Computed example of a mutant assay.
Amino acid sequence: MNALERDIAQLIIDTLALDHLRADDIDPDQPLFGQGLGLDSVDALELALALQNTYGLRIADSREARHHFETVRSLALYVEDQRSHA
């Protein structure tokens, strides 16, 4: 897990009050929804807001967001991509 992935995992923990987890407990390729970490649509909204506030992202298209919110790794790649276009 790289530094950005660890930061995003910690952001997930802090935002969603998953105090029973540590950032290193979340595999960067583990699905965030369903059988993975078990997040739901409300969690996705809270996480999207936290990502926007922390990284200055703009998540506009829900279909696009669904792809980026699959794993910690996909979120990190999205953040990196957005930073390179800023």
Rank of each mutant, 00 (worst) to 15 (best):
M1D: 02
M1R: 06
N2R: 01
N2D: 08
A3C: 06
L4A: 09
E5Y: 02
R6A: 15
R6P: 02
D7R: 14
I8A: 01
Q10S: 11
L11W: 07
L11S: 06
L11E: 07
L11I: 03
I12E: 01
I13M: 03
I13H: 01
D14W: 09
L16P: 01
L16M: 00
A17S: 13
A17P: 05
L18N: 04
H20K: 14
H20I: 09
L21D: 02
R22I: 07
R22Y: 07
D25T: 05
I26F: 02
I26G: 03
I26K: 04
D27G: 03
P28Y: 08
P28K: 05
Q30V: 02
Q30P: 03
G36Q: 09
L37P: 12
L37I: 12
L37H: 05
G38K: 09
G38V: 08
S41Q: 04
V42G: 02
V42R: 06
V42S: 07
A44K: 10
L45I: 14
L47I: 13
A48I: 15
L49Q: 12
L49D: 10
A50M: 11
Y55M: 05
Y55I: 03
G56R: 03
G56F: 04
G56L: 06
L57I: 02
R58I: 10
I59K: 09
I59D: 04
D61C: 12
D61R: 12
S62A: 14
S62N: 07
S62G: 03
E64G: 06
R66H: 08
H67M: 08
H67P: 00
H68T: 07
F69S: 01
T71R: 01
V72C: 01
S74N: 02
S74R: 00
S74L: 01
A76K: 05
A76H: 04
L77S: 14
L77R: 12
Y78L: 01
Y78T: 00
V79A: 02
E80N: 08
E80L: 04
E80Y: 02
D81R: 15
D81E: 14
Q82H: 13
R83M: 07
R83E: 08
S84Y: 05
S84D: 11
H85V: 12
H85F: 11
H85E: 15
A86N: 08
A86T: 13
